[in-house]
């Protein structure tokens, strides 16, 4: 059951509110609106594919709710200049990944065509999860939607560029991983000494560019 104003806000404990946005695009706009004009007491703003979690240990939830509802309505029906589009980041990739030929076979393409498809579209960072700095990149060419590995690797190096399902990603640091590796980026996407530590933040637009190894 949705409230009359059409924005559903679910409780997440004493200090959390989970705002349903209905879409990733609206989640990004709400995230941007709240970061630009952060309500008092809010410590976390975490966008997901169709929600934004807001954690506010120092706020009265009954006062925060209408504020979030108004922002969510604005995010769902943006005016002409509601929120500027995310910044564009170009990520260089050496396409020599261990799974490049397998992805080509699974998608019925040559390895060169996989590279063309992977570099041919602008992707958008949907949200982060799995590990610090691990961005789920949305908008991948549907031809490249391939299943994860049946058996994940125990070690994937930092900078590995991979695909799985409808997403692409750049591994921010070495970790286990079940995505299929297309190549590697010489540019780090995660640095704990930087502010922010992640290059790929929600809403950032990403273009991959093939470079020689």
């Amino acid at each position: 059951m949705s409230p009359p104003d059409g924005v559903r806000i679910r409780p997440a404990g004493e200090h959390g509110l989970l705002v349903e946005t209905g879409s990733l695009e609206a989640a990004h706009r709400l995230d941007a609106l709240l970061r630009a004009d952060r309500p008092a007491g809010v410590t976390e703003i975490v966008p997901g594919p169709a929600t934004v979690l807001v954690v506010a240990p120092g706020a009265d939830p009954d006062r925060l709710r209408p504020r979030l509802a108004a922002a969510a309505r604005a995010a769902r029906a943006p005016g002409p200049a509601a929120v500027a589009p995310g910044r564009l980041v170009t990520v260089p990739v050496v396409y020599d990944g261990a799974d490049l030929d397998d992805v080509a076979a699974l998608s019925g393409l040559t390895a060169g065509e996989v590279v063309e498809r992977h570099t041919g579209r602008e992707l958008v960072v949907g949200w982060l999860g799995f590990a610090p700095g691990f961005a789920y990149l949305t908008g991948l060419d549907p031809v490249l939607h391939v299943p994860r590995l049946a058996t994940p690797r125990t070690a994937v190096p930092a900078g590995a560029v991979a695909v799985a399902g409808p997403y692409s990603a750049v591994y921010p640091s070495a970790s286990p991983g079940g995505w299929r590796l297309l190549g590697r980026s010489p540019t780090p996407v995660w640095d704990v000494a930087a502010d922010p530590p992640a290059v790929l933040t929600p809403g950032t637009r990403v273009r991959f560019r093939a470079v020689a190894g």
Binding site: T43, E44, L53, V55, W127, L128, P132, G133, A198, P202
Partner: peptide, 11 residues
């Protein structure tokens, strides 16, 4: 580490 949840960082 509050405030980094959107970057995949646990609190």
């Amino acid at each position: 580490r509050p405030g980094y949840g959107h970057l995949g960082v646990p609190r």
